[in-house]
């Protein structure tokens, strides 16, 4: 409404406020009689009301319990906030310190983007065959399909940071371990997403290929792939966006990228460098988001034209 008519919500509301002031009392004067005439509208369902209140009380009680377990208290929050405001004050203006540091940070940023790109691409490549193995309509043996799914779930259940620590044991500290960590944890996620996409394919194009005498690879190439490729490409790009975010933290455990510098800056209380690094990450992520959204739109737009 604000977009179609050009008037903002505030303008509309100020008008209704005036109308309400003049007409409101007149409308409400008859409320008693209305309540009496239509009790079912005003009373509501007692069962639903009780359920609503019960759910809210349960959620609140759990929240209080969680606060007790995590040792949340107003005193701690208060003194912490004072400290936090102090830190934020020290962060202004953002500055890398020296030129050498700035160069180092930008190299770290490049590493982070490289980790996200390679990790996502490698995960997609690895997960592609597994997507077929975990799809119900491709694998005739249900047990085998279920086992593949569980395997993918287990891989997904372990956080990227834990995978990073394991890979550091194999290839040592550095961005390569980060690439492998993102690859492993996204492999589990992609396997699941791909298999769901494959399970959702339309049978008719496959039957069409069969009817013209197509072989099994031809069925895959011309019957299934054209249907799932846009979906998969969209998902991979979406994960690439979110991985540029997670790749920044992978450095905290020593697996390369800008996170290494960020963790170091925080530990040495170099607040101006911290804000500079966060700003750099914000800009980089928003640029990647823009590019990726454009590619995603191009791919999905293409699919819309075809169907």
């Amino acid at each position: 409404m604000s977009t179609t008519s050009g008037t903002s919500m505030d303008e509309i509301l100020s008008t209704t406020k005036k109308v309400r002031a003049s007409l409101g009392p007149a409308a409400l004067a008859n409320r008693r009689a209305l309540e009496k005439a239509h009790p079912e509208i005003f009373a509501g369902s007692p069962l639903r009301r009780a359920t609503t209140i019960g759910v809210i009380v349960l959620l609140a009680a759990l929240l209080v319990a969680a606060f007790v377990v995590t040792d949340v208290s107003f005193g701690r929050i208060g003194s912490g906030l004072v400290q936090l405001v102090h830190f934020v004050g020290l962060m202004i203006p953002p500055s890398p310190g020296t030129w050498e540091r700035a160069e180092l940070f930008l190299t770290g940023l490049g590493e982070t983007l490289a980790i996200a790109l390679l990790g996502t691409a490698a995960a997609a490549l690895l997960a592609f065959p597994f997507g077929f193995l975990a799809a119900r309509n491709v694998v005739p043996i249900r047990l085998f399909q279920l086992l593949t799914r569980r395997f993918l779930d287990t891989v997904r259940g372990v956080d990227t940071l834990i995978w990073a620590l394991i890979w550091i044991n194999v290839v040592g500290l550095g961005p390569f371990a980060g690439v492998l960590a993102i690859m492993t944890s996204d492999f589990g996620a992609f396997g699941k997403l791909f298999s769901e996409a494959i399970e959702a394919v339309d049978r008719r194009p496959i039957e069409g290929v069969i009817s013209t005498g197509g072989s099994a690879p031809a069925r895959l190439r011309f019957g299934i792939l054209p249907q799932i490729l846009p979906v998969i490409a969209g998902q991979v790009l979406y994960y690439f966006e979110s991985n540029t975010r997670s790749a920044t933290i992978i450095g905290i455990v020593g697996a390369g990228g800008i996170g290494l510098h960020l963790a170091e800056a925080i530990r040495t209380l170099e607040w101006q460098q911290v804000s500079f690094l966060i700003l750099t990450i914000l800009i980089a992520v928003s640029v990647i988001d823009q590019i990726s959204a454009r590619i995603r739109f191009a791919i999905i737009g293409e699919r819309r034209l075809e169907t």
Binding site: E111, A114, L118, V171, G174, G256
Partner: peptide, 8 residues
């Protein structure tokens, strides 16, 4: 990216 991330 491979060059930057030291892929080996």
């Amino acid at each position: 990216a491979s060059w930057s991330a030291g892929v080996d």
